[in-house]
Amino acid sequence: MNRILPILSVVTAIIAFWYAAVVPMNIHGVLDQAERDGVVVVPGTAKARRDFASLGLVMLNPGQAAKSWMQERPRLPAPHQVAIELWQTTVEKKVTSKRSLVFHAWVTLSATLLGFAIGTGLGVLLAVGIVHNKAMDMSVMPWAIASQTIPILAIAPMVIVVLNSIGIQGLVPKAIISAYLSFFPVVVGMVAGLRSPDAMQLDLLKTYHASRAATFWKLRLPASMPYLFTSLKVGIAASLVGAIVGELPTGAVRGLGARLLTGSYYGQTVQIWSALMMAAICAAVLVGLIGLAQRLILQRMGMTGR
């Protein structure tokens, strides 16, 4: 209770702020509609209102404020509008329908998960190579670290279009971007993890005459787990962003990124916000699942997971 109460009040404050912000954001549109319906508004014409600040218009027309929460195409939809849209497009639509957000989320999630699996696998392999081969360490590691400062996402459109031109479409190009984005965090985290056993522990295994393979399986790999999970959480969030951005450049019709793009083309703000919420839910679930796996596995291994 001690922990939940502050979080709840912050979330409530955010939602309250959101509702309050909806009124000035939408007041222009509301007043235009009211004028067309024959209601007297101050000032009387759209042209005169354009020069007014939004807050001033709210003050002059307090009676119209409530309508700003139920516009069809608001500049900023109210939270309940987004929630209703989410409910209608997830629960009330068949999962196979093109209007179902579950369908679009699955399109994006499948690319995310495939890419994440590839990126993590290759990242762990490269990390093992780096730890065991000094030449590789010295030549690759600086680039892996430097690559984290580069906006890798900028190559997403190119990857999509180039693969498209040689006939690869759909899931794979997006997965490649996802893989690329999750690859470097995993490499850097895993190298740090495999190096985390201290000299004392390594010396002990040496006195046991343990082979390099045995040292790897019995000491380095278990010791790297906390580091691995931390970078997996970063990696899966990056993978999801990669899959969403990967859907933008080709004008894809399926996936959360496509929902964002079509929403912004046709001014369907409620659709954008619901796609955004769905992406947030996906990210939260994915990161949460990895956190859960982290807790369970580290507990089972006798490490205090955090």
Partner: peptide, 17 residues
């Protein structure tokens, strides 16, 4: 916790809005 949660979200999606 709220900030930590939001930091993990695909905030880039707010770009069209």
């Amino acid at each position: 916790p709220v900030g930590n949660f939001i930091a993990a979200l695909p905030i880039i999606g707010t770009a069209p809005i």
